[in-house]
Amino acid sequence: MALLSLKGASAAYNGVRVVRDITLEVAAGEKVSLIGASGAGKSTLLGMLYNQQPERIALVPQDPALVRSLSVFHNAYIGGLERHPAWYNLLNLAWPLPREVRDVRTVLESLGLEDKLWAPAGELSGGQQQRTAVARALFRRVDTLLADEPVSAVDPAQADTVLRLLVESHETVVLAMHDVSLALRHTHRLIGLRDGRIAMDRPSAGLDPADLVAFYEG
């Protein structure tokens, strides 16, 4: 049975359709990449998928939208808010408990951010901010991940590690990706979007980045 599914779905902003007539199923355990030129409707499609089961999905939005005045610890901790009663969360806001600090630190270590644990998110570089947003998604500890260009600002060497971590930590993954070679390396299924429609949907095995250039030239 499909975990996420859309049937003839469309979406519009201000009366202009950005996604039309999409029919799509993602089964549990699938690792999927959405590719396509900017404006093809990747983010919109991702948002539609997210709305299906928001309570079971970890999200990395395109804009990391961190709380700039809070530390990296707190920004990651936000991912786990739902696991605890409000008083426990407030306690951790004022006085981070060693247990939570340890758990968050583990996540940050895997992302190479442990030295920024107490730095305000507003002081980080773009790549560091993006990794903090990834940390929040990881700290969410759910099975499904939707991520919109999660490594676009991370340097190439790290991008591979971060992406592997994200894919390995979640059973089901849907990524919106610009970098086709990364998409090919980390996911098993490629969905190509053009003008808001699905123009391609096939396994990534056997595909070459060169095959997909045409896709971006529209």
Partner: peptide, 24 residues
């Protein structure tokens, strides 16, 4: 304020998202 679609709700939203953002 533009909040993420998965932003927390209620008291958590108040304490972790909104107040820290507008505290300055």
């Amino acid at each position: 304020m533009a909040l993420r679609p998965d932003a927390p709700r209620g008291l958590n939203r108040y304490a972790f998202e909104v107040v820290p953002r507008l505290y300055g």
